[in-house]
């Protein structure tokens, strides 16, 4: 037997926690997006682990849907960052506190 379900889930939980730490402490919106990717990948790993554990493909389908949503989120987020950069707004999430545009 290889490593059991609990080992994979621990890795997934650690990834989620590391990603949330990055989202909370980093100020550069690019790295906030990268940390969000880590969080989504931790959730994906848990989904695929449970798909294997329960012998059901639904978790894999869900993981692929999460991947598509993550790609869409990156497109919109990077578009926002480029638009902010073009307007000479400082790229610092602590200073991006107003919606006035």
């Amino acid at each position: 037997m290889g490593p059991g379900t609990a080992w994979y889930l621990s890795v997934a939980g650690f990834l989620f926690a590391v990603g949330s730490l990055g989202v909370l402490i980093r100020r550069n919106p690019l790295i906030v997006l990268l940390s969000l990717e880590i969080m989504l990948n931790g959730a994906n790993l848990a989904l695929i682990t449970f798909a294997r554990h329960l012998d059901s493909g639904d978790g894999q389908i869900f993981a692929l849907a999460v991947m598509a949503v993550a790609a869409s989120e990156v497109v919109v987020g990077l578009g926002l960052i480029v638009a902010l950069n073009r307007k000479r707004v400082p790229l610092d999430v602590d200073r991006l506190s107003s919606l006035r545009g």
């Binding site: 598509a68 790609a71 989120e73 497109v75 919109v76 638009a83």
Partner: peptide, 17 residues
């Protein structure tokens, strides 16, 4: 729904960029 989400994201990316 995934295909629609991707299409909307592509349009949004073009508009934002």
């Amino acid at each position: 729904i995934t295909s629609i989400v991707l299409l909307v994201a592509a349009i949004g990316g073009v508009i934002l960029g």
